[in-house]
Design a protein around this nucleic acid. Structure first.
Length: 604
RNA sequence: GCCGCCCUAGCUCAGGGGCAGAGCAAUGCUUUCGUAAAGCAUGGGUCCCCGGUUCAAUCCCGGGGGGCGGCUCCA
């Protein structure tokens, strides 16, 4: 997938004891200790509950239990029980035991999951227990000194979770909680959660009338309402223009294709579970396309290419359909039909670094337009289910590293996170309230050209195989808009705002004048509407505020007489009244769609 | 897909085995108003769908659909 929300590290699930997996900063230590206290609390409330694991995670901790599902009321019960344990201020005591002792202890207590974990601990590794009060847990630690050190905690939610993160295993009951060094820090975090809820693109999407889903249309299929469609169009126009300025050629391809194409591309073999539809007509099977690359490849091989032609860069806002399991759909962030600002570059080997670097620069410049600083790069390497030769993978990974190094771009490595056909660079951005999102992706691909036997004619007349780069900058338009909605809390900058200015009449006496002002601004190219209703001015202002319209243009009898308009911004500033033409100029200047600085000419 | 929770007017939500509720929105009338909610009136329902239990189901039970929190997955 092109762009995924990073939910925070939970990788410690699988091997809770290995050193290195468990972060040892003071806050993680506190949270891990809090998870023990929570496990103790749950065991006090439910003596039959079996404990499993309970690590600290990015913003808190969790503990998984084998027990009956919890009910919402259990949150308070568990918190109350935890409070008692904290009040007792019990010391955390560490004890190293032999494997046999550990097995005996947890065996007697019926803690079958702990027994399983002990068996999975490598011979020779130390086995340690942590005890506070009567509660003993198998645990590498470290912990805080005493339960009383846990001063600010909260139980947040319940969820189902699979034992050892494998859906073939039993489903456990997970309890999420968080803990902080102080009540103030805890409150700040809970406030952030509230803020995130307020900014949720699904909520704002409804409030601002941007998009919807319809049960009958089908889950995961977006309906763009007029206001959302404007945002989308502005973005798509922007990318269409920039792509051409960066030496790409726009192409179009169909939404459906014969199964044969996807067999050849390897999608049928490696991507079967996500393919959508399947229609049989006149003895041929057709599928909705999950990706655009096979189509762009078909364009490439429609004629013989020369080394002089490369790089060839095809760009398309390509709509793809992927079957996503029902439980994973999430607003605009995870859908079944979406549009990628996709491109495929067909290049020679000696062009790898220049082209990857060009993609990187393009991507970074684009993100900057939306105020995303703090972009982080991730190199995703060969997955288990990979296609092709290991040597080619290693070469590609090395090339990507050189590009990142040359760009001075710090990066982290996501081992095994690559696509089945090649390694990739992903860019992650941090939004206004500190959440990380993955959007832009560049993937180097040696496999597809081989599968489709792509060629170009080299200077010596021999046939050579081009290399491909798959890249998407927004990732998917749907997801990018979701991120933007949350980033701006629905208050889009002027150039993206569905309605840029609304004319508001003070009374019906100014109705004709108000209509005239709106018409002039609309003709000037501003997205303008008007509120001529008989409501009081305050009510109209409020309504526009809630719609987060950048400019409210108040017109009353006074303005009408002087042929001026009194603007108010959505952050509550009242600007001096000004003539319509001046106002139009000011607003137009602010409404200009930005463009990227440098141009990248095509170098053949 | 899995575990849990939810689905009542356009929206947000209350209610609950026996006449279907509120606020906002909509419509009409009154008000003609200067920077975050004027007043009155009216209309509006397959209580997600299908089946079962019952004299009676929006409510209880079963199945299905959709959503939410997570898990798994995520090109």
């Amino acid at each position: 997938m092109v762009c995924a929300r990073s939910a925070g590290p939970v990788s410690e699930v699988v091997r809770p004891r290995s050193k290195g997996d468990v972060p040892d900063d003071p806050l993680s230590r506190l949270r891990h200790s809090a998870s023990h206290v929570m496990a103790d609390a749950v065991r006090r409330l439910r003596p039959n509950a079996k404990v499993t694991i309970g690590p600290a995670i990015e913003n808190g901790f969790y503990y998984d239990f084998d027990t009956e599902p919890f009910a919402p009321e259990d949150i308070e019960r568990i918190e109350a029980e935890m409070a008692k344990i904290v009040a007792q201020n019990l010391p955390f005591e560490r004890k190293v035991v032999s494997r046999a002792e550990a097995l005996k202890l947890f065996g007697e207590r019926g803690e079958t999951y702990k027994v399983e974990i002990i068996h999975s601990i490598p011979e020779g590794e130390e086995i340690s227990l942590y005890q506070h009060g009567d509660f003993i847990d198998l645990c590498a630690g470290p912990h805080v000194e005493r339960t009383g050190d846990i001063k600010a905690f909260k139980v947040l939610s319940f969820a189902g979770a699979y034992w050892r993160g494998d859906e073939r295993n039993a489903q456990l009951q997970r309890v999420y909680g968080t803990a902080f060094a102080s009540q103030a820090d805890l409150k700040a975090h809970l406030d952030r959660l509230e803020e995130a809820k307020r900014r949720d693109h699904r909520v704002l999407g409804k409030q601002l009338d941007l998009f919807s889903f319809d049960e009958v249309v089908g889950p995961g299929f977006v309906l763009w309402h007029p206001k959302g469609a404007i945002v989308r169009e502005v973005l798509e126009d922007l990318i269409r223009k920039e792509v051409v300025r960066h030496g790409y050629q726009p192409v179009y391809s169909p939404h459906v294709a014969r199964e044969q194409l996807l067999i050849q591309s390897g999608h049928m073999a490696h991507y079967k579970d996500n393919l959508f539809g399947g229609i049989e007509l006149e003895g041929q099977r057709y599928l909705a396309k999950p990706m655009n690359c096979p189509f762009h490849i078909a364009i490439y091989r429609s004629q013989l290419r020369s080394y002089r032609d490369l790089p060839i860069r095809y760009a398309e806002l390509g709509t793809v359909y992927r079957y996503e399991r029902s439980g994973v759909l999430h607003g605009l962030l995870r859908v079944r039909g979406f549009t990628q600002d996709d491109a495929h570059l067909f290049i020679r080997e000696d062009q790898i670094e220049a082209e990857m670097a060009g993609c990187l620069r393009f991507g970074l410049d684009l993100l900057k337009l939306f105020g995303f600083a703090n972009v982080k790069a991730f190199l995703a390497t060969r997955p288990a289910d990979f296609m092709g030769e290991i040597q080619a993978w290693n070469d590609a990974e090395a090339a990507i590293r050189r590009v990142l190094d040359a760009a001075g771009m710090p990066y982290e490595v996501d081992e095994g996170g690559g696509a089945f056909y090649g390694p990739k660079i992903d860019l992650k951005i941090r939004d206004a309230i500190g959440r990380e999102w993955q959007c832009t992706t560049f993937q180097l691909d040696f496999q597809m050209p081989q599968r489709f036997e792509l060629e170009y004619v080299a200077p010596d007349g021999s046939r050579k195989r081009p290399i491909m780069i798959h890249r998407a900058l927004f990732g998917s338009v749907e997801r990018f808009i979701a991120v933007l909605i949350e980033q701006f809390a629905g208050a889009f900058p002027m150039w993206l705002a569905p309605v840029q200015a609304r004319v508001i009449t003070v009374s019906e006496k100014a109705e004709a004048y108000g209509s005239e002002v709106a018409a002039i601004l609309t003709a000037a190219g501003l997205r303008t509407d008007s509120d001529l209703s008989a409501d009081k001015l305050n009510a109209k202002i409020r309504r526009s505020q809630l719609e987060k319209i950048p400019y409210m243009l108040v017109v009353g009898e006074r303005d009408m007489a002087a042929r001026v308009v009194s603007p108010r911004t959505r952050d509550g500033r009242q600007l001096p009244a000004q003539p319509i033409d001046d106002l139009a100029q000011m607003l137009l200047a602010e409404a200009t769609v930005p463009s990227l600085g440098g141009t990248q000419s095509k170098s053949a």
